[in-house]
C-alpha cells in the first residue's frame, strides 16, 4: 500500500515537472499493476523465512562497492535544470525542432519513443515478452506437474 501511495505521489511530481507521459506510466504501472503483483507474491510466500546458508559478508561488500561507485559517479551529474547539460546539447535540439517536420505528430515523446528511438522500444517490448515467458515458465510449469500428479492419483 505504501508503494502504491508513493507511486501515486511521484506521478503527481512528474505532472508538476511537465512529464505527463512518465506520470501516466508511473500511475498505471507503479500504483496499479505492481501493487497487485506484490500483494499476489506476498500471498504466495510463507510468513517465515527459512534459515539461509549463504555467506553474509560477501553481499555486503558487493553492495558497498557498487554504492560507492554510484555515489562517485553522481558527483559528475550536472545540476537540475542546467541548460548546458550534455543531454540537452546532443540530439535533443534536433528532436524538438525537427520532429514536427519529419514525423508530423504533436507529441514529441511519442515521436522520439516510436520513431527516432524505435529500435530501443522494440528491445523493450521484447524484454517484456521474455520476462513474461520467464515468469510463466517459473509459475506455470509447477502447476502443470501438480495437475499431472492429481490426475495420476485419480487413476490409481
Amino acid at each position: 500500500m505504501l508503494f502504491s501511495a508513493f507511486s501515486l505521489l511521484s506521478a503527481g511530481l512528474f505532472v508538476a515537472l511537465d512529464a505527463v507521459d512518465v506520470a501516466f506510466t508511473e500511475a498505471a504501472v507503479g500504483a496499479g499493476i505492481s501493487t497487485i503483483l506484490a500483494l499476489a507474491t506476498l500471498a504466495l510466500t510463507g510468513a517465515r523465512q527459512e534459515a539461509g546458508t549463504h555467506h553474509k559478508v560477501a553481499p555486503l561488500i558487493v553492495v558497498i562497492i557498487t554504492g560507492s561507485v554510484l555515489i562517485y559517479a553522481s558527483i559528475d551529474i550536472p545540476p537540475v535544470g542546467d541548460s548546458q547539460a550534455p543531454s540537452h546539447l546532443h540530439v535533443a535540439p534536433r528532436y524538438l525542432n525537427q520532429s514536427m517536420k519529419e514525423v508530423g505528430i504533436p507529441n514529441v515523446v511519442t515521436s522520439v519513443l516510436a520513431s527516432y528511438r524505435g529500435y530501443d522500444t522494440l528491445g523493450e517490448v521484447t524484454v517484456i515478452l521474455t520476462a513474461g515467458i520467464g515468469v510463466l515458465a517459473l509459475l506455470g510449469g509447477r502447476r502443470r506437474k501438480k495437475e499431472r500428479t492429481k490426475s495420476g492419483d485419480k487413476e490409481e
Partner: peptide, 12 residues
C-alpha cells in the same frame, strides 16, 4: 500521437 500516452500505458 496527440496527447500523453501510447501503447505501453494503454496496454497496462
Amino acid at each position: 500521437d496527440f496527447g500523453p500516452g501510447g501503447g505501453f500505458q494503454a496496454g497496462v
